[in-house]
């Protein structure tokens, strides 16, 4: 094989191997016949319905055969589409979306299937009507269906990065499908069903980041039509809720790195001294409960080093911070020996 993931190794006797070989011979023959037939059609540049069906047959056996997907699209563009009405084109593409949906169930991580879906979506014609809303009808229906599919795939495997990427692509292409608030609700739901789902935390950081422009450190939200006072208080409310949310995750399982990485993003460069100090207190509180928590200690070092940027403030006692960092780093060397060189390097930079 060329690339296996997560397939258990089994020992087979030479006799069993020979039996398998004989059994597979007819399958190999059948597959090679389909393969040769397809490549011959492609070489002859024919773009008929029967050529299209030949791609369907081989792709149902081997969805990774990218050349067959390419040929299928060439047949659409050069043979089937020119002879079809917009309604028929919409039907062709809808049926390809259905076919690839069935394939994704069996092969959720095959790039070529996801790619073909994108191509189909981008070729849905305008219609059925000619004006305004009706002109977007087919497209809207397809994009809506696509969101449903992406989210179904994420229900099955909440870490499938193909499905997450695809979902982001849908929202970017058809923004009205999900508002920022919808996105916050969706990611919260995903996180609450599994705090370890860093893909959902990541997506949340992108949504909030877009709402605040770039990172929380810059803190300039743009909500048009709101008074600056209203915007300001809504902004602080979201931030406060977010810190409460991540805190509950940290306390639920301090050994899970997902929420800690998100927490680090939320604090950013630590420009807000009050927030930074408050979050350090939160971690110290947790450290009392979990004195050997590696992530508590590592985060304390990170945030206390951010505090040093504010060394001109009277509340920031540089030598005491350095001492506390050194103490935490020594402890980290003991409880996390795999990475002790990193802790030693940081100590030298204090």
């Amino acid at each position: 094989m060329v690339s296996n993931h997560n397939v258990k190794r089994t020992r087979v006797s030479p006799e069993a191997l020979e039996a398998k070989r004989l059994k597979e011979l007819s399958k190999v023959k059948e597959y090679l016949a389909l393969n040769d037939d397809l490549l011959a059609r492609k070489r002859s540049k024919t773009y008929r319905k029967e050529d299209f069906e030949a791609t369907t047959r081989i792709l149902s056996i081997n969805p990774e055969f990218y050349t067959a997907w390419n040929y299928r699209r060439e047949i659409f563009l050069n043979g089937l589409f020119p002879a079809s009405t917009p309604a028929q084109i919409d039907e062709f593409l809808s049926s390809d979306l259905d076919m690839t949906m069935a394939q994704l169930q069996r092969h959720p991580k095959v790039y070529w299937i996801w790619n073909h879906r994108r191509w189909c979506l981008e070729h849905v014609p305008e219609g059925p009507g000619e004006d305004g809303d009706s002109r977007e009808g087919w497209r809207r229906d397809n994009w809506n269906k696509e969101m449903f599919v992406a989210e179904k795939m994420l229900d099955r495997d909440p870490r499938n990065f193909h499905a997450w990427n695809y979902r982001r692509y849908i929202v970017a292409s058809w923004p009205s499908i999900r508002t920022k608030d919808d996105e916050l609700k969706y990611t919260k739901k995903k996180i609450q069903s599994n705090f370890s789902n860093f893909s959902a935390w990541h997506q949340r950081s992108k949504v909030l980041g877009a709402m605040w422009e770039v990172t929380p450190a810059t803190r300039t939200e743009q909500d048009e039509g709101m008074s600056s006072h209203h915007t300001y208080s809504r902004f602080w409310l979201i931030i406060l809720e977010e810190f409460e949310f991540v805190k509950s995750a940290l306390w639920t399982d301090p050994g899970d790195q997902s929420a800690w990485i998100y927490h680090r993003w939320l604090i950013g460069e630590g420009d807000d001294l009050v927030v930074l100090q408050r979050e350090i207190d939160v971690i110290e509180e947790l450290l009392v409960e979990e004195p050997d928590s590696k992530w508590c200690l590592d985060s304390l070092v990170h945030f206390q080093r951010l505090l040093l940027q504010h060394k001109d403030e009277s509340s920031v006692d540089v030598s005491s911070i350095q001492q506390r960092c050194a103490f935490a780093l020594t402890k980290l060397e003991a409880i996390d020996p795999k990475r002790n060189q990193r802790y030693q390097d940081i100590k030298l930079q204090l």
């Binding site: 690339s3 070989r21 190999v28 090679l32 056996i61």
Partner: peptide
């Protein structure tokens, strides 16, 4: 392994392999 179906199903990765 030309008698294995898997060998032929992975032809699209042959040069990489």
């Amino acid at each position: 392994n030309k008698d294995d179906l898997a060998y032929h199903l992975t032809a699209h990765l042959r040069l990489n392999a």
